[in-house]
Amino acid sequence: MVNLNVKFCGVDFKNPLVLASGILGVTGDSLRYVVQCGAGGVTSKSVWLKRHKGHPNPVIIANEYYMLNAVGLPDAGIEKAKDELGKFLKEGSAPLIASIVAGKQSDFGDVAEEVSKINPHILEINISCPNVDDEFGKPFACSTIDAAKVVEEVKKRTKLPISVKLSPNVSNIAEIAKAVESAGADAITAINTVGPGMEIDIDMRTPVLANRVGGLSGPAIKPLAIKAVFDIYKAVKIPIIGTGGVLTGRDAIAMMMAGATLVGIGTAVYYRGAEVFGLAVKEMKEWCKNEGVKNIEEIIGAVHL
């Protein structure tokens, strides 16, 4: 018998695979559906304080190597989030990581306080979405000072454990991780999408995404994500949700060996359907069985000698 249970920020997950923010996750029922497909936990789409419009279509394009998206964080705001996430929490099928986003430091505090009222298990602070205008996400996760300020603000306004989602689009992600740890973060989620990148339709002579640029995810970014998690694990003591390009159970194990306690799965839903969670759990169990691993927690950080 293989035990895939992990404890993360004091919360028990029946397996380490969690839905990454931004994929599905618009409604309570959709989060429950992902749990039924085998996820150990789920992350909501990023919640804004007020209604936030996304970008026009196309918002997502993909092929066998990568996905490029600029959905633009559409959200109906805090009241809808309370309804939908509250419904999911009431059913109690798995732990909920509520992702929050804001354009200003003080708004991060407000949305954290409001979302905390429905008592999700963990808050994830999205300071790294590359798809919102420059005065939004990007600067926070790209500067140690700004990232730390957001964390301090959120910590003042909630008692929940917080995980800070970092951007890979910096020269030294470990430095940012250290800064948010010092500011009081309980965990790190890494990485958000890479880039942004651009795809051009040469016949139309125009970028394909309506937003022109979008965040890169999928198989192509897995080595970047693994390396980022490896670097962060060396730099901090707080646990990590490793996200980026994980498609299979073996990928998830690699991410854990680099230092992740939980593994985010998002773009893989495109390649293998929402059923990817159940499939990857099975693949993890098979590997553990063959390798004589009884508790999955044994392998966290295994490559760090």
Partner: peptide, 22 residues
């Protein structure tokens, strides 16, 4: 429907929670 392939989550139905594009 936005993406058409079960990622963006905009077309999920209540009850099942599954994306109607898939």
């Amino acid at each position: 429907m936005k993406c058409g392939f079960g990622i963006c989550g905009n077309c999920v139905n209540d009850g099942t929670g599954a994306p109607s594009c898939k």
